[in-house]
Computed example of a mutant assay.
Amino acid sequence: MSDTPPIPCTDLIVCPKCDAAYSLQVPPAGQRAVCDRCGQVLIDTRHKAGLQIIAVSVTVVILIIAAAIFPFLSIQAGGARNSVSILDSALAFSDGPLIALALLTAALILFVPLARMMLAIYVLTPIVLDRPPARGAALAFRWSEALRPWSMAEIFVIGCAVALVKITDLAQVELGPAFWMFAALVILVVAQDRIMCRWSVWNSLDEEPAT
Rank of each mutant, 00 (worst) to 15 (best):
G79A: 06
A80K: 14
A80C: 05
A80R: 11
R81P: 00
S83G: 02
S83N: 02
S83W: 03
S85V: 00
S85Q: 08
I86P: 04
I86N: 01
D88I: 00
A90F: 02
A92I: 12
F93H: 07
F93S: 04
S94W: 09
D95G: 12
D95A: 13
G96R: 13
G96T: 11
G96W: 14
P97K: 14
L98R: 11
L98D: 10
A100G: 09
A102E: 02
L104N: 07
L104E: 12
A106R: 09
L108F: 13
L110Y: 04
F111G: 06
F111H: 05
V112N: 04
P113F: 02
P113C: 11
L114G: 12
A115Q: 09
A115S: 14
M117G: 03
M118E: 09
M118R: 07
L119V: 04
L119A: 12
L119Y: 01
I121W: 02
Y122T: 05
Y122M: 10
V123K: 02
V123N: 05
V123M: 08
L124T: 00
T125E: 14
I127L: 15
I127N: 01
I127R: 02
V128G: 01
L129K: 11
L129N: 12
D130H: 14
D130A: 13
D130Y: 13
R135Y: 05
G136F: 07
A137H: 05
A137D: 08
A138D: 08
A138R: 06
L139Q: 12
F141C: 09
R142V: 06
W143L: 15
S144Y: 01
S144F: 07
S144P: 03
S144T: 04
E145P: 06
L147A: 11
R148C: 07
R148S: 14
P149H: 14
W150G: 15
S151N: 14
M152W: 07
M152F: 06
E154Q: 11
E154D: 14
E154C: 01
E154R: 08
I155D: 15
I158S: 15
I158G: 12
C160I: 01
A161Q: 10
V162S: 12
A163P: 07
A163N: 09
L164G: 06
L164E: 03
V165S: 07
V165D: 00
V165H: 03
I167T: 12
T168L: 04
T168N: 07
T168P: 02
L170A: 11
A171F: 03
Q172T: 02
V173L: 12
V173A: 08
E174I: 00
E174A: 08
L175T: 00
L175Q: 06
G176Q: 06
G176C: 04
A178H: 00
A178K: 02
A178V: 01
F182A: 00
F182Q: 01
A183L: 12
A183E: 03
L185R: 01
L185W: 04
V186M: 05
V186R: 05
V186S: 08
I187Y: 11
L188W: 05
A191I: 15
A191T: 13
D193P: 01
D193K: 10
R194D: 09
R194A: 13
R194P: 03
M196N: 08
M196T: 15
C197T: 10
R198C: 09
V201H: 04
V201G: 02
V201A: 05
N203T: 14
S204C: 11
L205P: 04
D206S: 11
D206N: 14
E207F: 08
